[in-house]
Every structure is written in C-alpha cells, then in structure tokens.
C-alpha cells in the first residue's frame, strides 16, 4: 500500500509537470500567432513574384537560364527543414521518417542530405549519413537574410554541377491544427509557363527581359525558401502547442485519479483511528 505521504508527493510532482506544460503551451500559442502572421505576410510577395515569373516566361518565349535547365539527375540534394528544439510532439520524427523513406526510395543512393535544424543533425549524424551541409541553430523567427544565404549556397551548388536537383522537404502550415509534410522540387525552377496569359506580351522591359529574368530567378527562389521556412516555424509552434496541450490534459487526468486515491486512503486512515478510539473506550467499560 502506498502511504499517504508518497501519494501526496506524487500529486505535487504531477502538478508541477502540469504547470510547466501549461506554460509551454501558452508560450507556443503566442509564438504561433507571430509565426503565423509572418508566414501570411510573406504570401502577397510570393504570389506576385510567381505571377511575374509566369508572365515573363510567357512573354519572352524561350529564355535560357542556368536555373531553368533540367539536367540528367546524377545527384540530388534533399533539404530537410526540422527544428532545433524538441517537445513538439511527432513534428521532427515525422519529418525524419519521411526523409528516410525518400532516401530509401532512391535506389541509386544519389541523394544527399542538406539539413536544417539540430534535430535532423543529431539523428543523421548518429547514423553517419553523408550530408552536404548542416545548418543550426535556425533563427527563432523566419529571417530573410538567412533564406537568402541558404538560397545562394543552394544555387551555387546547383550551378557548379555539384547537385543536379534540389528538393525541399518541410512542413506546410495549413491551420493551427493542420499541417502536412511536403516535398517540392526547388531547383531547377519550374518556369510558370502554363500561365500562358499573353497580356505581358507588349510590355516594355527595362533593361531587357533577359536581364530582368536573371535578377528575378534568385529572388523567386529566396522568396520560396523564405515562405517554406516561415511555414516550418509556424508548424513547429502549432505542433508544440498541441503536444503540450495534451500533456496538460493527461496530467490533469492523472491528478484527478491520484486525488481520489489519496482521499480514499485518508478516509480509511480516519476510519481506522475512530475504530481504535471506540474500541479503546469500550475496553475501559
């Protein structure tokens, strides 16, 4: 029989845990709001630059650009965006599992990892996977400079021929309760030629379409990566919020159970004492 004292100690400890998870839940909720606002604020630019790219590709006909060029894929870089911190449910585990599946699916073993976040680094380093680069720490808020630097690095590797394709795997943020892991081809850039609207046809280009194209593509790539990183951060916070929320609920249930046990035990002790007193008094008569 667990004594009353150990039961009380247990309740206190679970209460402490509950308090911590509750605090973490609230912090994650606040961070989620900010990250979500940031992810949403980035969308108009991203939409517009995609539209411009489509118009330009449609207007200028067959523009050649190294970032457009489909090559025979001998080596693929898989950019995996995870978080630096844990305690966010299955967020990182899901990403790592999806990445491993992707690696296994490529029978030639020509896919190399490009890792973002401490969680991915720890996992794949332990297993000695060959990686192109690992980036950690990740800024706590989606930062443009960070996305630009990464874009430049990826473009450099692509143009130099180190990799023939870059894939981007991250968690797309849908709503506070929904997110999904997606894989997108990041390089070469798929020109939005399907757009086909000819209204850009008579546009004036300054200096000329080709030069604008050359300026536009890296920015398009950076905007896309920035959006992906912002989504990943929002997803991480929402994942943590939900994980901490259910931890708080579980702690609550455990506390209820333990309190019930404690009350029963206390009652039993009181009853026993009463019986002793009554028994003692009777013996005196």
């Amino acid at each position: 029989m667990s004594s009353l004292r150990t039961l009380r100690r247990r309740i206190r400890s679970v209460q402490n845990t509950q308090q911590i998870t509750k605090a973490m839940e609230m912090v994650a909720a606040a961070k989620l709001r900010r990250a979500q606002a940031r992810a949403l604020a980035a969308r108009p630019y991203s939409a517009k630059i995609t539209e411009m790219l489509g118009n330009l590709a449609g207007a200028a006909g067959d523009l050649e650009h190294p970032l457009f060029k489909m090559r025979e894929v001998k080596r693929t870089a898989l950019v995996l965006v995870t978080s630096d911190r844990g305690l966010c449910g299955a967020y990182n585990a899901n990403l790592i599992r999806a990445a491993e599946q992707r690696l296994r699916a490529d029978a030639t073993g020509a896919t190399r990892l490009y890792l973002v976040g401490r969680k991915a680094r720890d996992y794949f380093r332990r297993r000695r996977y060959p990686t192109l680069r690992t980036i950690t720490p990740v800024p706590a808020e989606a930062q443009l400079d960070f996305a630009r630097e990464m874009t430049q690095d990826l473009i450099g590797r692509f143009v130099s021929g180190e990799v023939d394709r870059v894939e981007l795997m991250f968690t797309r943020f849908i709503s506070a309760l929904r997110r999904r892991i997606v894989v997108e081809t990041y390089l070469p850039i798929a020109g939005g030629k399907a757009d086909g609207s000819p209204r850009g046809g008579e546009a004036i280009f300054e200096p000329d379409a080709e030069a604008i194209f050359g300026e536009l593509l890296p920015r398009y790539a950076a905007a896309k990566l920035f959006a992906a990183l912002a989504d990943a951060l929002a997803s991480e916070h929402s994942s943590r919020m939900i994980a901490m929320g259910s931890a708080r609920k579980n702690a609550g249930e455990l506390i209820d159970l333990l309190v019930l046990q404690r009350n029963r035990l206390r009652q039993a002790v009181i009853t026993k004492e009463l019986l002793d007193i009554v028994g003692g008094a009777e013996a005196l008569h």
């Binding site: 411009m52 850009g200 008579e202 546009a203 004036i204 300054e206 200096p207 379409a209 300026e215």
Partner: peptide
C-alpha cells in the same frame, strides 16, 4: 515617373 494609364512595363 509613372502616372495613371501607363503602358505595361517591367523594370529592375
């Protein structure tokens, strides 16, 4: 400078 009803234009 651009005023209303400018012709279609793209510039860096």
């Amino acid at each position: 400078g651009v005023l209303a009803h400018h012709a279609a234009l793209v510039t860096a």
